[in-house]
Design a protein around this nucleic acid. Structure first.
Length: 365
DNA sequence: AAGTCGGGGAT
DNA sequence: ATCCCAGACTT
């Protein structure tokens, strides 16, 4: 990868940084403790959000020794509202470690630094490069995004593989004369220009070196495959009959299974009574009374990409409330909202079913 | 490798 | 509403 060493964009970015860098309380202060605190506070947190906390923190715990003396309750209280509270607990433990075992000197090498509580690869690199000007990379979300675009890398930047691939390039391109400035330049650049959505390529100082820009891929990069956790949804379904007709509902024209037909159903129920009440409410709004049979007729588990339905289906009979004795189906149909309908079993095949609801049609009798 | 941990600003 | 942020730790 020697072709990637000393790329032209690095001095260009540093020149941009010299003009546009943000003035921050911990920047260029040379105090490893202050930089350490600022880095931990910044994890998964926007600078503007953590700034007031940083100022308050430094009033309460101006030095390593002050923080090492503080209790866990005190540090967590000072963190109140910032979120990710284990950051505060670990920061205190890490600082205690330094005071008690390293003579109060923040370590100058990555291995020791990373052994401290709450200090991972990123924070170690940030502190070492910014406080000691050690040639260490600090690969965070900004850096992953910027490099994915600059070098047109389509690996998932959230995966181990993508992070390793990009970290290798960052190590190759790190300028050893100004590592601290370079790492901070990437942060400022990432938050001001090479932003996640709609990057400001018009004002980018290194657009001439950006492979994503040249290939018009800036909006496709970086690739982030979010592992959406599958939400488990209990679903209480009614196969509800009015004479020879079944009551169906059309899902809204958005979201999951949009505009497809389903049997009336309610989410988030754990008991039969709860589900029965939910269905009663549904059909009463339509002018029906419900008599539900407490016999489970079908159970289906259906997995979508981000959602898992646990369906329990029950049969029930409907009577029309405003019952003029021989009211016709057509007359009732006309009263229903247009996302509801009554159809016979032999018409089931004519409609688009909302996924697993189609399997329930065979339970209609 | 996946799950967990918060809160807020931008879109 | 979703996305995503100067990530680290546990399972």
């Amino acid at each position: 990868m020697t072709d990637k060493k000393n790329p032209k964009w690095v001095p260009q970015l540093l020149t941009w940084y010299d003009v546009h860098k943000r003035e921050l309380p911990w920047r260029d202060c040379g105090d490893p403790y202050k930089i350490w605190v600022s880095e931990v506070m910044s994890q998964q947190t926007r600078i503007e959000a953590m700034k007031p906390y940083y100022d308050n923190w430094m009033r309460l715990f101006p030095t390593l020794e002050d923080l090492a003396k503080a209790t866990e309750d005190e540090v967590v209280h000072a963190w109140q509202g910032l979120g990710y509270y284990s950051r505060a607990r670990n920061l205190r433990l890490g600082v205690k470690d330094v005071v008690e075992n390293y003579g109060g000197i923040v370590p100058r090498d990555r291995k020791t630094m990373e052994s401290l509580k709450g200090v991972g690869s990123y924070t170690a690199g940030a502190v070492l490069s910014m406080a000691y000007n050690e040639p260490e990379v600090a690969v965070d979300g900004n850096v992953l995004r910027i490099y994915a675009r600059l070098y047109r890398i389509f690996d998932d930047i959230l995966s181990t593989k993508g992070k390793k691939a990009i970290t290798a390039i960052v190590e190759d391109t790190l300028p050893h004369d100004r590592p601290g400035d370079f790492n901070q330049a990437l942060m400022d650049f990432g938050s001001a220009v090479c932003i996640p959505k709609s990057p400001r390529c018009g004002e980018c100082p290194i657009v001439n070196m950006c492979e994503a820009y040249q290939h018009k891929d800036t909006d496709k990069l970086p690739v982030r495959i979010k592992k959406t956790k599958v939400v488990e949804v209990p679903l209480f379904v009614g196969i509800l009959q009015y004479k020879d007709y079944y009551l169906l509902h059309k899902r809204p024209n958005r979201g999951l299974l949009r505009s497809m037909w389903e049997f009336p159903s309610v989410e988030m129920v754990s008991t039969f009574d709860e589900g029965e009440r939910g269905l009663e409410e549904l059909v009463q709004d339509l002018g029906f009374e419900l008599s539900l049979q407490p016999v489970l007729v079908k159970e289906i588990t259906h997995i979508f990409s981000h959602r898992k339905w646990f369906m329990k289906a029950f049969r029930g009979d409907l009577t029309y409330a405003g019952d003029a004795k021989n009211i016709t189906i057509e007359a009732i149909q006309k009263q229903l909202p247009k996302d509801w309908m009554l159809i016979k079993r032999d018409e089931f095949a004519d409609y688009a079913w909302a996924g697993p609801h189609g399997k329930l049609t065979e339970m209609a009798k």
